[in-house]
Structure formats: C-alpha cells, structure tokens
Amino acid sequence: MKVIRFKNIIQKFLLGNASKEEEEVLNKFEKRLLAYNSERVFTRTPAEEIRQELSKRIVKATRKRVSLTYRWTAAAVLLIVISVGSWWLIPMETPKVATATPIEWQEVSTRKGETCKVHLTDGSVVTLNGESSLLYPTSFSETVRKVRLIGEAFFEVTPNPNKPFVVETEQLSTEVLGTSFNIEAYAIQENIKVTLATGKVRVKAVGQEFILAPSEQAVYQKEKSEIYTQQVDVSLYTDWKEGILHFDGSSLIAVAAQIEKFYGIPVQLKVKDAEHYYISGTFVKEPLEVVLKQLSFINEELMYEYKGGKVLITHKK
C-alpha cells in the first residue's frame, strides 16, 4: 500500500469516517506489527500490557468513555509510525530497532558588522561572518558531525577519521575529516564558494562530487546549477576573520556588499554601470571612513556621503 493511502486511512479513522474495510486494514496492521516486532520495539513488554496502558491514557486524555478496540489500534499505529518513521514500509522479516532520543539543535546568528566564534562539542571552532547563522546539535551523533550554515563561516575542524564533519548549505554539502576551510553561502549572492585552507574536503552538488586540495575553491553557480573548481589565494577569502578586507578586481557592487556586511552600515549605490567599476585594495582593520576615502581616491569618478544612517556612493558632480 502507498504511504499517502495509509496516512489517509489513519486520518479518516481518527475523524470517525473510516469504512469497515479501512478499519480492518488498521487492525490487520496492528496484529502483524505486534506479532513480528513487539519484542524489539517495546523491549519485551507484553502486548497486552501495552494495550492496557494506552487505553488508560486515551481515557484520561479524552475524559469520556469510548470503545477502545479500534481507537487503540489508531493510537498504536500513530505512535509506532512516529517512533520508527517509515519502518512499516520495510518487510517484517528485517525489522529495525527504534532510534535513540531526537537530536536537539541550537542556532547562533550574527548581525551586519558582527563576527562570532562558536565552539562545538567535538572541539571544532566555527567563526561566523556578518549576517550569518549556524545550526548545530547540542551533541553529535555516533556516526556523523553535521551542521547547517546560512551566510559565511570559517571552519577549523577537529580530526576524527571515524566521524565525518558535514556542513550543509542550501545547495551544497561539504564533508571533511579534519581541516580548515571557508564557506560563503549568502542567499542574495549568485554563487556559493567553498575555499580550502588546509586538509581535504569533499564538495557535493547537482549529482557531482569534487575533492578539494589546499588553495582550491569550489564555486556553485545558482542560476546555472553548475559547479566548478579553481585555484585561488586563500587569504582573499579567509582574512575577514582578522578584520582584513580584500578587494582583488572586485566590482563596485561586490565591494558595496562587502562593506555593508563588514561594517554593518547599509550602502546604497547610485552609480550607472556599477558592475563595470573594478576595485583593488587591502584594508587592515581600518575605520570605514578611511576605506571610503581610499575607494573614492582609487576611482576619481566616485564620491560618497553619509545620508539617513547609510552610505551613499554616487558619481562626482
């Protein structure tokens, strides 16, 4: 039987709209499941004790007397399906043991202009850039160390050959054993970039897989759903952790986005063909005023001003 059909039967039964044939489907399922799997699922608790305990709880919750013969069936089905997921779709001859307690997740987020270090339970350290979020478990599972990232972060992963470290973003999955790397995965940007500093990582996307070596970068193009690798200067993508801004032939649009993220101040461009203005330069822990003056000096056609709590970059009059 298809999953959607089985769910519909359960829903109809709980609403009191199931036919006798549909009730019989649930009743047969109950008997099969208990016969084959009760010992594993309920740790040798007798089926009759389970029936009685569930019946008591249903009566207490509803505060009224009802026939429990089929209500218990529905409750048991729901509890079992919730506990073991799609176990009932697997042949009864090869049952699986119910999983352990659910993983609890925590989230750390940064605002514009902020960075934050997160120390994970395995000793790994994650440095979040501005406007980023990291979702991670309070304790890792026995088989994998998995976290989820929105935005940008630099990872310093504690080696553990028996428990891979996996970073999931919207379109990419990056797997490592012990290494340091940077992931840039902002929703508003056209590309997602994984830049390896040390060790090795495996990057997966759109059915492709790449193993990166140090100084290699994987670039996922969202619009084309394509991924490629290239050699890069790692410092251009990781020095933000030290308060250093790098512009290496970057478009004015990219520069404005970097300044906004780095200093936490909105930047508005009123420059025609801004994508065709290219900026190069390195700024080491410089105040925003210094950076803006240098940018207007590098390109004499541009000027800036503070207006309404934001930076406005325009053509010189």
Score class of each variant (00 low, 15 high):
Ala187Gln: 11
Val203Phe: 14
Leu212Asn: 08
Ser132Ala: 11
Asp233Glu: 13
Ala187Cys: 05
Leu135Thr: 11
Leu134Val: 01
Val232Ile: 14
Arg145Gln: 03
Glu156Gly: 01
Asp233Gly: 03
Lys200Cys: 13
Lys146Ala: 06
Asp239Gly: 00
Ile150Asp: 08
Lys163Asp: 04
Val234Phe: 12
Ser124Asn: 04
Gly207His: 07
Phe155His: 02
Pro214Arg: 03
Glu156Leu: 02
Gly243Met: 07
Lys222Cys: 02
Phe165Ala: 06
Tyr186Glu: 07
Glu209Ile: 08
Gln221Asp: 13
Val206Glu: 13
Phe210Ala: 09
Gly178Arg: 05
Ser124Arg: 02
Arg148Met: 08
Glu242Gly: 06
Ile183Ala: 05
Gln230Glu: 14
Glu168Met: 08
Val201Phe: 15
Leu128Cys: 07
Ser139Gln: 14
Leu135Lys: 10
Ile188Trp: 13
Asn191Met: 14
Ile150Ser: 10
Thr195Trp: 15
Ser173Cys: 10
Ser133Tyr: 04
Lys117Thr: 13
Glu170Ala: 12
Tyr228Ser: 09
Lys146Glu: 14
Ala187Lys: 11
Tyr237Ala: 05
Leu177Ser: 09
Gly151Val: 03
Leu149Ala: 01
Glu242Met: 10
Gly207Asp: 06
Lys117Pro: 07
Asn182Asp: 15
Val157Asn: 04
Ala185Met: 06
Lys241Tyr: 04
Ile150His: 06
Ile244His: 03
Asn162Pro: 00
Glu242Asn: 12
Thr229Ala: 08
Thr158Val: 12
Lys193Asn: 14
Asn191Cys: 13
Glu131Lys: 10
Thr195Ala: 13
Val234His: 02
Leu236Ser: 03
Lys222Phe: 00
Ala153Asn: 02
Val176Ser: 12
Leu245Tyr: 03
Thr143Pro: 01
Val206Phe: 06
Glu242Arg: 09
Gln217Met: 15
Ser124Trp: 05
Phe154Cys: 03
Gln171Asn: 14
Thr198Ile: 10
Thr179Gln: 11
Gln217Thr: 10
Glu175Ala: 12
Glu242Tyr: 09
Thr121Glu: 13
Arg202Asn: 15
Gln189Gly: 07
Val219Arg: 04
Tyr136Lys: 00
Ser235Asn: 08
Gln230Leu: 11
Ser139Trp: 11
Leu128Gln: 03
Gly178Pro: 07
Ile244Glu: 02
Asp122Met: 07
Leu177Lys: 10
Leu120Gln: 01
Leu135Ala: 04
Val167Phe: 00
Ser139Ala: 15
Ser139Gly: 06
Asn160Asp: 15
Ile227Glu: 01
Gly151Pro: 05
Gly178Ser: 11
Phe181Ile: 08
Phe140Gly: 04
Gly130Met: 07
Glu184Met: 14
Gly130Leu: 06
Thr229His: 01
Phe154Pro: 01
Glu226Trp: 02
Glu152Leu: 00
Ile192Tyr: 08
Ile183Phe: 08
Val125Ala: 06
Val194Met: 10
Lys204Cys: 13
Gln217Lys: 12
Asn162Gln: 13
Ala218Gln: 05
Glu223Trp: 06
